[in-house]
Every structure is written in structure tokens, then in C-alpha cells.
Design a protein around this nucleic acid. Sequence first.
DNA 1: AGAGCATAGTAAACCGATTTAGTAAGAGAT
DNA 2: ATCTCTTACTAAATCGGTTTACTATGCTCT
Lengths: 337, 337
Amino acid sequence: MKRLAEHLGLSQAAVSFVINRSPAAKSIPHRTQELIRAAARELNYRPNHLARSLRQQRSFTIGVVVPEISEGYAALVMSGIEDHLLQEGYFYFVVSHRHRNELIEEYPLLLQQRAVEGLIAVDTALSEGLDVPSVAVSGHRDVPGVTNIVLNHAKAACLALQHLASLGHRRIAFIKGQAFSSDTEVRWDAVREAAQKFEIEVKEQLTGQLEGESSSPLLGYQVTQKLLGSGEAFTALFTFNDISAIGAIQALREAGQRVPEDVSVVGFDDIQSAAFQNPALTTVRQPLREMGMIAAETLLQRITAPANAPYPTEIVIEPELIVRGSTARLAQPSDVR
Amino acid sequence: MKRLAEHLGLSQAAVSFVINRSPAAKSIPHRTQELIRAAARELNYRPNHLARSLRQQRSFTIGVVVPEISEGYAALVMSGIEDHLLQEGYFYFVVSHRHRNELIEEYPLLLQQRAVEGLIAVDTALSEGLDVPSVAVSGHRDVPGVTNIVLNHAKAACLALQHLASLGHRRIAFIKGQAFSSDTEVRWDAVREAAQKFEIEVKEQLTGQLEGESSSPLLGYQVTQKLLGSGEAFTALFTFNDISAIGAIQALREAGQRVPEDVSVVGFDDIQSAAFQNPALTTVRQPLREMGMIAAETLLQRITAPANAPYPTEIVIEPELIVRGSTARLAQPSDVR
DNA sequence: AGAGCATAGTAAACCGATTTAGTAAGAGAT
DNA sequence: ATCTCTTACTAAATCGGTTTACTATGCTCT
């Protein structure tokens, strides 16, 4: 920019006014403005965003914290976030912590050092004391300064169990999420409540839990093998997510159970490949992309709002049941009394 | 930092020397250093990364350009990139262009404005005239300043066709990638060459092409329907990627063909869910995560190397054939003469 | 005593922009 | 002729650090 100003024989200030169409530019005649713009184009001038951010104390950058990138869940949310963010002229940093606690603590601080104007945490518990507005997708802890975007888990559980109950299922097995997943606890509470409502017994031996960091179908496969080995019969299985449902179906098949004839399976999330499984997965759809978009939108609103303006602490998203081929009516009720 | 210096009764320079452990700090006695560090900890001082980047002309930031985030392909590569980058203290911006040309042009410029020290383009053609070192994953155009990371497509095609040929298949259908995908052309050339080698005829009516922006199995489903409608019989299908293979299998089934008994299907990529399809997908594995890591590693090496140092223009990655359940020996040779 | 050197710092320039406060020149009003 | 107002800018401060060049003090050696 210094070169530009010199080349034009003007001051940097004048150039800056014109380039930024700042109100101060009104005192600069049209002809000069044209000259400046032409020169900028000719010299291929692009303002240095760092310098601008430093001076204006506006970086137009936000930080996104996710557990890991490969996961269908985070990728979908990110794609929604990105959609809204780039459209509004913001860029974002992504960091993934792989559930390592020291990283979960450290990354938000590092991001703030990099002058992000806000944070979006996906399936990650944010600690207190952040200096910037934050949004937590699937956040359930009540942290000052954080807006939680949560699914209506009560409804989600009802949709799934109602569907299974209406097909005649009473002996239902469940797969809970990993302990570190934010939704695990809330969803499990919702499931138990819904089960009570539909008078379905939740048996200890028929509840498994995903274990392990990765998000591979293998985890669901292993838990399902355990459930099958418990000796308790079941005619339906409600899994924590679609990925584990895929593994579960594999395990059921290998044990000689047909899906959905012998065992119905309901997944969760509705990831892209859910529709193209064989059989296609019946699942509780979380609108992950939309949740990402809403997260970004909410965050930007909070960033541009006055510092002490009130903000929502929770935004509830409605789930939807997508019925496909992995659930079917129970042929002969197993629950004969 | 100004506050810190005042609070200590020292100059900013002294504080800076100590905080950064710069060589100039050697003239500052241990006791004072301790004092400074203690105060920094106490006041919870965190240096402003923008200011630092501006002065040092080092942002420790790189830009990653991808077609879209939801795709399994890009997500896997990104996860490899992230792994290496964060470990080395770099952060990165992600932008996705969704195959819109003006964005493909514009984003690298915007990223450079944001002072990225390098670019990684995933399945995206970089234009010439970039000011920073760049790496293109699956880049095939020869652009000055760009290191291409490419799969050995010749080998990939051989692996797949050799496998099919050894199972007795001669009438093989092919699904090419979308025109905008960087690998499409190179891979297709490799396939034709390999076909010649194994004396397999590549018939016009038995070659389809994916069409459409999205990366859903639906695309593969539609192309396969066309292939089935062509009237030409085939006993094997080699698809452009696993996603389309999944759709293809669906279409084959609906047309009454069993996989693998009637038609063998070979996919490409080996995405996570490939192993958990039913039947599990035989596929040519691209080590996408490793490719991402290598891309990041190469880029950082180039960034820290002297400006005019020589750099690799191409790094070739070897594919691997993963045989699973979607391919089988041909029961009765269809190619009776 | 004076030169030479190490020690312990500091003042000020600098990175590349934005922004505030101010100025010089000319026009119009009185 | 002088005052005021507008026009068309400019000088310099600023953002928050890093870095270069320099200084003041004390010690050692001859």
C-alpha cells in the first residue's frame, strides 16, 4: 500500500479511504478515486489482512473445535458452518482434539491468541472463562457465554421407541454412546423416559455402550456381539448412531439373525450413507448440516451484537424419524405372557 | 505486554526477549527472567498472534482448498493434513468451492491476503502465479510452484483389472468420474492401458460417467441403470469410487442381479464404510489419510526451505487392492467363442 | 588510570494497514 | 479585506508485538 501511495503521489491515508469506501472518502473527488482504484487494480494490490485485523481489532475469523474430522457427524456440521461463514466473509480455523483433555483445554486458548472472534465447539465441552462468544453444538453444560444448540432428545427417543413399539417390539436392546460424547447422557435419560412411557423394559443385559475413540462401525459390531452373547433375546436394537448401527447389522447377520425379519435396527443421525445401506437404515434424523448453519448464524449475530446484549443459552432442534428398510413388524410377538 | 512491562518496571523489549527465549535473552540474568515469566503467568499473558505474524512475516498458517467437506474423500485427506500441521504448530483455514470456478480462482487469493504461508489443494486445480508454496493432492497439471501428490493410477488400474481377469471376467463395465474431478482423465487412461494389457475390450456401451455435483451413491445408481439398459451384458463393474459402487450395487440388485454371484463390483478409495457394506466392497485402496499427511509434510518442508531451493514436482503414492466380498469367480465364462 | 569487555538492559524503528486530528487552498459571504 | 466554510487531502498515532542499535554500569587487566 505504501508503494501504491507513492506511485500515485498521494498519502496512504487517501488510498486507504478510497479502497475501504470509508466515509472519509466523500471528500475525495471521483476522478481521484478512479485513479486510485485503477492503480490498485494495475499493481494488483491486495490489503494485508493481518495488519487490518490488528488495527481494527476485527479478524473476521472464528475457531471450530471438533473431536475429529473423519467422522460423518463433525464433517456434516462443519459443512453447514462453512456455508454460512464464508458467505458472510468470515474464515475459520479447524482444530480436532481427539478427546485428549489437554487439547480440549488448550485449543480454545490458542484460537483466542489467534484473535478469533468466536468459537464453535462440536460435541465438545467448552470450559468456562472464554473471552469470546461461543456456540456449542450438542453442548449440554450450562456455561456462561455459551449458546448450546441441542437436539430435542426427548422427542427423538419417543419417535424411535414409538415406531418400534407400534411394530410390536417389546424386547429392545440399546447401545449407548461413548462416555465422552456430549449427547450420551442426555439421550440415555430421554430413552429411559420414553421407554417408561411406552411401557418398554430397559434391561441391564440388553444395554451396551460404545467403547473406544474412533468412530468406526467396528465399535457397534463389538458391542452387538456382547449383547448377543448375553443370553437375553431381543427383537429390536436402538443404536447411538448410524455408524454403530452399520456395525451392529453386520454382527447380527453373522450371528444368523436377519435384519429386519428377526431384529429391527434403528440408527441415529441419518448420515449420507444411511440411505444406501442394505437394508437401508431406519434412523432418527438429526439435521446436522442445519445445526451447523444455525450455529454459525447464531455466533455471527452474537459477534456483531453489543458486548453486553442478551443472547440465547439454548436453541432446540427437532429430530425426524426416517423409516427405511431396517425395521419391520414383529412376526410373532416374543413377549408372550 | 505493555502492561506486563510496566508492571515489572522493565521495557517491552526485555519482556519480549525472555518470553520468546530469543538469543538476546542471554544478557538478562536468570533471576529477572524468572520474574518476567512469573509475572506473565500471573497476569495470564498470551501474546497476540496477529501482531507477531505481522512483524515476523510468519503466520504459521496454511490454507486448504477442498471441493466440499462432507465428502468422505476430502474429510479423510483433511484429517491427515491436520494431524501433521497442528503437531508442527501450524493452524489452517479450510475453504470449499463446490466446483464453482470463480471460487476456485478467488479463494487462493483470499487465503494469500490472509497471509497463509502455503496452500494445499485437494482434488482442485490450482491456477498459476501463486506466491506461496503449494501442494495439490490428486493434482495432475504441471504448475510452477506446485508439488503434485498423485496415486499411481497405472498400478491401480492393473490391480483391479488383473483381479477381475484372474476371476475369469472379460465383459467388464466401467464408471468414469465426473469431468471436474482431477483424477478422472488420468485414471481412465490408465484403465484403458491396463485393459489392453489384459486383453479386455473396453466397450463404448459399457462405459458410463458420473454426472452431478454431489457425492452421493445416487450418482452411481443412476449410471448403473443406464449401463443395465444398454443391452450389453457384463459380469463385472469397475467404479470410480466407493460411493458410486454402493449406488451401483443397489441398482444391480434392483435389476435382479446378485453381487457378487452375477456381477462383481470393484470400488475405489476404500472409504471407511467400504468394509461394512453388504457385501463388503472389494476396492482399490488410496491411502487418503497418508496422502494428506504427506501433503502437509511436504508443504512445511518447502516453507522452511530457502525460497529458491529445488522442490519435488510430483510424489507418487502406491495403491493397494483390498479384496472383500463384492467380487467372485465367474461361474460360467460368458465369453464363449 | 585507562582500555576493553561483559552485563543488563532501553529507545526507537518496524510490520501494513486504519483512523484521528489537522492543514492548505480556494470559494462565497459580509 | 476578512471571516467562514468546504474541499482535498496529509501527518502522525495506533494496533501489539519483534528486532536492531545503542547506552550505562561495573569489572578486569595492564
